[in-house]
Simulated assay, not measured.
Amino acid sequence: MTFMNSFQTLDTLEVGGRTFHFFNLLKLQEQGRVDLSKVPFSIRVLMENLLRNEDGRLVTTEDIEAILDYDARKVPAREIPYMPARVILQDFTGVPAVVDLAAMRDAMKQFNGDPARINPIVRSDLVIDHSVQVDAFGVRDAYKINTRIEFERNKERYSLLKWAQGSFRNFSAVPPGTGIVHQVNLEYLASVVMTGEAGGRTVAYPDTLVGTDSHTTMINGLSVLGWGVGGIEAEAVMLGQPYYMLLPEVVGFKLTGRLAEGATATDLVLTVTQMLREKGVVGKFVEFYGPGLDELPLADRATIANMAPEYGATMGFFPIDHTTLDYLRLTGRSDEQVALVEAYARAQGIFRTSETPDPVYTDTLELDLGTVEPSLAGPKRPQDRI
C-alpha cells in the first residue's frame, strides 16, 4: 500500500527507539488549513482517518476537504467515508457474517478461483457471550459445567468458528466464558493506538471500529472511536469498504466538580442520560470535556459511554488523557504500548490535559458532578429517573 498524502501531512515519530510514520494533524494547522484547538477530538480522529485512507477512489481529496472545513456550529449534510481499523462481532450477529464469508469461498471455488483469497481485510474479532446460558449455579464448578454444556449445545457453531479462525486471515474468535464482549474489548482487544505495515513503513494511527452490538459505544470511554452498526454494514467494513456517514454534529457535555460521597457511576449515568434525552442528541456525537474529567475514573467513563443508545447519540466520546494511560497499565498493556499511545496522542494534538482549550461544539450542556444524587432508573425508561 502506498499513501497519496495530497495534503502533505505524513510525518515520523520516534518512540522507544522505533520510528513510526503517521498523518500529522498539526501539519494542517501549520499550513493554515485548520485551527485544531477548535475542532472536537472525535472529529480530529475522523480527519486522520480520511487523510490516511485517501486513495482517490473510496476516499477522495473532496472528502478530505469537506472534513477540513468542518464547523461544528454549521455542519453541512455531507457524507464522508469512514474506514474503521477493525470490527468487533458478538456471536448472534457475527456468526452469520462468518457463514457469508464461507459461502463466498464456496462461490470462488465454483468459479475456479482461489478460495483462500476471501478474507476479512480489516481485523475482525468475534466474542462469544450472548448465547451463553446458566444451567448450573450456586456450586463450586458452575463455571466449568456451564462452559462444557455450552460447547456441547452449540457444537456445530464452534466447529465452524474453529475452522474460520484457522482459515481466515485477520479473524479471531474469543471463546465463551471469557467475558462480555464490551468488557473484553475494553480490557483486552482495544489498543487506543494501532500500528501496521504499509509501503515498507510502520504506521501508527488511532484505534477505531464498528461493532454488531448497539453498546459497542462502551469503548468510547477508552478514547476509541466506534459505535454499533447492522450486520450488512459490518460485513462491508470487514471486506474493506467504507462506512458511509453524514458529517456529525458534536454536542459538548462539560463536567465540573466531583461526585459526592455516596453517589455512584449508576447515579451519574442516569443523570447524564436524562439530560441528554431532554437535549435531543439522536444521530449526533456527544463529547465529554471539562475539569470534571480529571475526577472521573475510566470505569465511570465506560459506563457513561455504554449508555449512548439509551440517550440516543451515535456515541459518547472521552479524549485520551492520563486516565486512559493509567487504565492501559492497569489492564496489563505493555509499557511500550502505553508509551506509544501517549507519544502519538501528544504529537497528533489529541491528548487532553487540564490546560487544553475547550473545542467549539454544535451545542453544549453542563453538569456539576457534585450535584448528582442517588437515584433509580424509571420503571420503563432509564431517563425517567426516580
Rank of each mutant, 00 (worst) to 15 (best):
E48F: 00
Y361Q: 10
G370I: 07
P309I: 06
T362W: 09
E48D: 11
K254I: 13
R329E: 13
I145G: 01
L239K: 15
K279I: 03
R78K: 15
R18P: 03
V269G: 04
R18N: 12
G230H: 06
F171H: 12
R329S: 12
D326I: 00
P319S: 09
T212S: 14
F22Q: 00
L186H: 06
E48C: 03
D368C: 06
R385A: 05
L222A: 14
R52S: 10
D335N: 11
Q348H: 11
A77V: 01
N170Q: 15
V39S: 06
V95R: 12
G221M: 09
G292E: 07
S131Q: 12
V192H: 03
D55E: 08
F318L: 08
G211E: 02
A164Y: 07
G312K: 08
T9I: 03
T202A: 03
I320F: 00
A97P: 00
R86A: 12
H322D: 15
L89W: 08
D63K: 09
V59R: 05
T271W: 04
K279L: 14
I43T: 09
Q8L: 08
Q165G: 13
Y82I: 12
K38C: 05
G316K: 01
L298N: 14
T195F: 07
T93V: 10
G94S: 10
L58C: 05
F168E: 04
Y344G: 09
L225V: 11
L189A: 11
E54T: 09
Q383A: 11
E295N: 15
M315V: 08
I386G: 13
R73P: 02
E355Q: 14
R277C: 12
S334M: 07
T9V: 14
Q383I: 00
F41N: 14
T331W: 07
D63H: 15
V181I: 06
L296A: 04
P120A: 11
E261I: 02
I121S: 11
K109P: 00
L126G: 05
T61F: 00
A190P: 02
V139T: 15
G166H: 05
V250Q: 06
T303Q: 13
V34K: 09
G312E: 07
G280D: 00
L126E: 10
G113A: 01
A236E: 13
R148M: 07
Y289F: 13
H130A: 14
A173H: 11
V360H: 02
R385D: 01
F168S: 09
V34Q: 08
P374Y: 06
N220Q: 07
P84M: 08
Y327G: 01
L270R: 15
L89T: 10
R157E: 05
G332R: 13
I304P: 02
E197H: 08
I43K: 07
A234D: 01
G113T: 00
D100Y: 05
T212K: 06
M218D: 05
E30D: 15
Y188M: 13
N154Y: 12
Y82G: 03
Q183M: 08
Y143T: 06
T61M: 08
A116V: 01
L25Q: 15
K155A: 15
E366D: 13
R201T: 01
G166V: 04
R301Y: 04
S172C: 01
L225E: 14
L58R: 14
A236R: 15
D135I: 05
T273W: 01
Y188R: 15
G211S: 04
M104R: 10
M238P: 03
L367N: 10
M104S: 09
F23A: 09
A313P: 07
D106T: 09
F317R: 02
